[in-house]
Design a protein around this nucleic acid. Structure first.
Lengths: 233, 233
DNA sequence: CATGGGAAGATTGTATACAATTCGTATACA
DNA sequence: TGTATACGAATTGTATACAATCTTCCCATG
């Protein structure tokens, strides 16, 4: 899913890696709420390891923006502020539209065909497990586009950004059933790319990212500071 | 220099932080050559600490792309390949042009005036210390632009990217005296920004980034695999 | 001479113990 | 009552010891 040519490095089975993946999953699926306190020792007890691997995982998540460290107080799940959401979408727009442009110029017909097969995804309204699966496949689609840009550095940065944005999307899915809408968006984008129209494809991506942002904004306005600890940005 | 409103976090004086900063400086100034092997224990001995802080620093540098880890062999300074340079400039172009656009719409006249004062920089040809100072100030200029975008996430990502690209620029400065040229570029960009012409400013930034890439490419072609270990990309 | 096995060395991964720093609180004092 | 201060609890930061894993090289064996 993540990478077609994942020659980079085989992810080894290490405790630090396990803690990292588990913690990240729990954070992006909102099972650890924004603002929730996490201590190294507590996490070590939870995962049955020592503080050293936990520490490594936490520093990684901190660098990716999902955790915030307050020295001698502990780690905290980074709060979700309107500004952070807006900043993230703005940056995503800058990077992903370029990725689409580059991909149009560099991907083979064969690869675009394969991309097309990843465009059709859906979920079941108000089904949590379905949400998780949907977001995973949606991430896969966008990462495939990024990978077709043939730019490893761009891929890595966009990968990190999209992962940290996953929890925003979790907030949005409950607002309504957008499965069909997003599937149509994906398919439209791929059609532009197959036609090798880089300008139209980039504009299409830009517009879809804005639409996604609007969905999140509406979901946030609907929830309006009751369910989740949203900090003022 | 880095940030005007650096409210984010006071950089604590910790051993891991010291090792990180020292190592990063030595890598971007090419005092540690691309491909050079670095072991945790050796670094610990060098810096007079234990492996734990060294490890933390190395993982950070690895995630930023300056170090490459080969399991059970050691860390190595990431090689500089033509593709890595090209990828980096491509990504930089995507992010920085957007940063310029945003800054034009959000910075105050006062801030743009201050930015103007950072534009005039120069260096002395074939003077190493002068190079380091020049690159530092040049970085400061571009980071100030990024900061004026008012997008923290964009700032952080571009910051990391530009830092890791510093060592490319080191290769380029010896090719000739580009001080005046780059100063003119900076001043032209600022003039576009002051005129609040975001399209012209973004196009100007794009063109300048391309020019910078060309300078590096020529420098690399001139050196042609004799002085430095350049891996084939 | 090619090849597989295995021991030795090196490196990373993990656990535990200890030091350093910070924050809250209680308390002494004005 | 208000304020300063000292103490203690909690947490991170660091050092060291040990275990696991990989590489390498040598040697036996076909």
């Amino acid at each position: 899913m993540a990478g077609p040519r994942t020659i980079v490095a085989a992810p080894r089975r290490t405790a630090a890696e396990e803690v990292y993946r588990s913690l990240r999953r729990d954070i992006v699926t909102l099972q650890h709420r924004p603002g929730a306190p996490l201590g190294e020792q507590a996490l070590a007890d939870t995962y049955g390891t020592s503080r050293v691997p936990v520490r490594e995982a936490c520093r990684r998540l901190q660098q990716e923006g999902l955790l915030t460290s307050i020295p001698y107080k502990g780690y905290f799940v980074s709060p979700i502020s309107p500004k952070e959401i807006s900043d993230s979408f703005e940056l995503r727009s800058a990077i992903e539209t370029r990725a689409v442009s580059l991909a149009v110029g560099r991907a083979s017909d064969r690869e675009l065909e394969r991309l097309s097969s990843l465009a059709s995804i859906e979920y079941t309204y108000s089904d949590w497990a379905s949400y998780a699966d949907f977001l995973d496949k949606n991430l896969g689609f966008h990462l495939e586009v990024a990978s077709l840009s043939r730019n490893d550095r761009l891929f890595t940065v966009l990968h990190n950004l999209l992962v940290s944005m996953q929890r925003f999307f979790f907030l949005g899915l409950d607002l309504g059933d957008f499965g069909a809408e997003m599937r149509n968006e994906h398919e439209l984008l791929v059609r532009h790319m197959i036609r090798r129209d880089d300008v139209a494809a980039a504009a299409c991506a830009e517009q879809q990212i804005t639409a996604s942002y609007e969905r999140i904004r509406r979901a946030l306005a609907a929830a309006e500071g009751v369910e989740l600890p949203i900090s003022e940005g």
